[in-house]
């Protein structure tokens, strides 16, 4: 009896579409909230959102993030606040893609994207530097560092809206 019951289940699924996809020819659809590789975001005017506060590193359960901060000047401005990340590195071998860094970020600078195809042949290559993580400036916007009008940015932390 049990054998028949088992084959009935099999027969029922025979008619359905296959769940398996032919990766890499076929690409899986990601949910909006999928947590892949990190991006450092910019404002529309090209300035970096990251203010180098290191809270992502503090929140990181895998100790994968390394931040060194420095101070902005109007001649060399990276972020609209007083402080920016001079060094920003994520060790992708350590990262567990939990997204705590994203939650901890006070300026929504770090966000986990959908890229998941990361491979390395050297352990050192797993360390993604700031240059690799940061988005390109929006079209028409300058990259950083920018030279700005003195006194144009006088807040420690920019308001959450786009300051431009």
């Amino acid at each position: 009896m049990n054998v028949i019951k088992g084959f009935q289940t099999t027969a029922k699924h025979l008619m359905e579409d296959a769940v398996t996809i032919q990766y890499p020819e076929q690409v899986q659809k990601f949910h909006q909230r999928y947590k892949g590789r990190h991006h450092l975001r910019r404002y529309e005017n090209g300035l970096e959102k990251c203010i180098g506060c290191s809270l992502c590193a503090a929140a990181c359960p895998a100790d994968a993030i390394w931040v060194e901060a420095a101070e902005n000047t109007d001649e060399e401005r990276y972020s609209p606040g007083e402080r920016f990340a001079k060094t920003y590195e994520i060790n992708m071998l350590r990262c567990i893609f939990c997204g705590y860094c994203e939650d901890a970020c006070p300026t929504e600078a770090i966000q986990l994207g959908h890229e998941h195809q990361m491979s390395y042949t050297d352990r050192r290559d797993a360390i993604y530097t700031k240059d690799m993580l940061i988005d390109a400036p929006a079209e028409g916007a300058a990259s950083t560092p920018q030279q700005v009008e003195p006194g144009a940015y006088n807040r420690s932390i920019p308001d959450m809206e786009d300051p431009s």
Partner: peptide, 11 residues
Amino acid sequence: HPLDCPICDKG
């Protein structure tokens, strides 16, 4: 008081 804590050296 400003909400500077994320970048404040005293934070």
